[in-house]
């Protein structure tokens, strides 16, 4: 668990690798409260709107993966109450892909007597193509 004293610039976060399947995409979509069709759960709709022959995994799955490595690095007591994740999605993620999420500390700044730590976040697929990039933060005592 990271605390201010142990956090160094460039420090690597524990990475995770996730296999994306049709089941996991559909199960993620089933967590919602509206029973709606979209480009994640309806191939015909994805084909019509995007011209793709596949449905897309929701970008929020990548957000959740990124939040996982942040939580593991900072600890749930810190991250679940002060954490942020901000990602831009660069490429589609689809069933059959394997997404690896990694991160490294980019710096920190003092705020109200506490330290906000910034992390660069990267999501890459099995071909080494970047599917998302962005920043995470958390505030440590």
């Amino acid at each position: 668990m990271a605390s201010r004293t142990k956090i160094e610039p460039d420090q690597k976060l524990p990475s995770v690798t996730k296999a994306i399947t049709t089941d996991s995409i559909l199960q993620f979509e089933s967590c919602g409260i509206l029973d709606r069709e979209n480009i994640h759960n309806n191939p015909a709709l994805a084909a019509k709107r995007l011209g793709t022959t596949y449905t897309l995994a929701s970008g929020r799955m990548s957000i959740t993966f990124a939040a996982e490595i942040m939580r593991k690095f900072f600890g749930p007591e810190v991250f679940n109450h002060t954490g942020t994740v901000n990602l831009k999605f660069l490429r589609p993620v689809k069933a059959g892909d394997t997404i690896s999420v990694s991160g490294a500390v980019s710096g920190s700044e003092e705020i109200d007597g506490k330290t906000r730590v910034s992390v660069n976040l990267f999501c890459d697929n099995q071909d080494g193509n970047r599917t998302a990039v962005g920043i995470g933060t958390a505030v440590v005592e």
């Binding site: 929020r60 679940n80 109450h81 002060t82 954490g83 942020t84 994740v85 901000n86 990602l87």
Partner: peptide, 13 residues
């Protein structure tokens, strides 16, 4: 329809 270009989330509890 729409495509999600990015998400930003803050966690509090």
């Amino acid at each position: 329809g729409t495509v999600n270009a990015g998400n930003e989330v803050e966690f509090f509890n």
